[in-house]
Amino acid sequence: MHHHNHYYGQAHILARYCGLNDRYPPPIPGYLQHGWNVFDGWNPQHEFYPGAWRFTWSDAPRRRGLMLGRREYRVIGAPWNYLLAMEPDLGVVPDHERVGTLWFLFHGWERGEIAGEHARLIDEIKETEPGPVTMSLYYTEYERPEIRSFYQDAGFRVICFGKRGWNYEGTNRTFLHHQLAELRRHKRVASNRLSTAVFYGASVGCVPAVYGDPMELAGEDTAFGGTERIARLWPDLHGKDIDLDSVRALVDGELGCASLHSPDELRLLFDWGRDDEH
């Protein structure tokens, strides 16, 4: 129903989980939260069509959305959890072979670029990370040579998982599959802002870290309270040396791991039927 539902191939994952057409997934009758955020999964000004249901990852977004007078929330957990359920072996290596850090640079988007001190950040990463660093850039930064070269010249392996898509076009349907495989090869996951990828990495056993210049995003909405609010609410997930076991419950909570639906239940919830099989 909304092109955001296709971002990162999340609708495709859910369709496959339900045994339906995952190349052209049937429409989800509402809005699927497409990334972790500090509000209700969307921004406070987001326009929804009347009566729309909102499918969130966890309960906190539901609670915050109700505060705005929005209704019709249903917590289903992150599509990432459904991918993990379907791909228990994808990219898995023995623990002793997991090496290095998959480092996610806070990224811009189609309508806003980031600005910050990349050189200083690289110095801090080198000082901090015990092993080789794989730098994950979103395509908005990856396709800017002046940014990509910073990290390549630093000796990091630089990768990009592709595009999340826009208006149903250009979506890398296996975006999260590749991310999962990479995370399972690394020992640590890190970023300069607490963000979706950090939760994903921690959920598959990467030791998380959040540090460094959080950088500025052009036109960033301060309504969320900024990085200060995120640090206040999740202090345990900030720092260079985080104990994974101590934050596991927190990570599972934000990803809504306890809300995994069965395929039958999800099909009913999305009004997906046999006609959607092919």
Binding site: P44, M67, L68, A223, F224, G225, E228, R229, R232, L233
Partner: peptide, 11 residues
């Protein structure tokens, strides 16, 4: 002094 749980968009 803002402590965890400050509520925005709310009165």
């Amino acid at each position: 002094e803002i402590i965890p749980g400050e509520m925005r968009w709310w009165t």
